[in-house]
């Protein structure tokens, strides 16, 4: 799994690529940690290039959401394909996240 990081309009965007499973989830966690640890983080995670996410990956997203919330920041997810969306749906996680269709929409929604 590769992770591309960008910053646009005061929002950090993290775009993982490939599979987020129990092996690679820790990589995502490592990259998320400094971003969600910022003061009032504004973060978008773009799933456009993610083929698969396991429950271990969901846990990392849950941890990130909680940290962002505690820091009074904003987290938006975008670009979910059918397979990724189905995993979020099955776990009952869709209502827990702010989910946008496109990266532009996600960035605009949470930009300062």
């Amino acid at each position: 799994m590769q992770i591309v990081e960008a910053r646009t309009g005061g929002v950090d965007v993290l775009a993982p690529r490939g599979r987020i499973d129990s092996t690679t989830a820790s990589l995502l966690d490592e990259r998320l940690a400094p971003l969600v640890g910022a003061e009032r983080p504004r973060l978008v995670v773009d799933f456009s290039n993610v083929d698969y996410i396991s429950s271990a990956g969901l846990r990392i997203m849950l941890l990130a959401a909680r940290r962002v919330q505690e820091a009074g920041g904003h987290l938006a997810l975008c670009g979910m394909g059918a397979a990724v969306r189905q995993v979020f749906y099955l776990a009952g996680f869709l209502p827990l996240f702010f989910i946008c269709a496109s990266r532009d929409e996600a960035v605009t929604s949470i930009a300062p």
Binding site: L62, L90, A91, G92, F93, P95, L96
Partner: peptide, 11 residues
Amino acid sequence: KGLALGVIDTS
């Protein structure tokens, strides 16, 4: 559909 166990205590 309910939420996975352990996430929100009042779910």
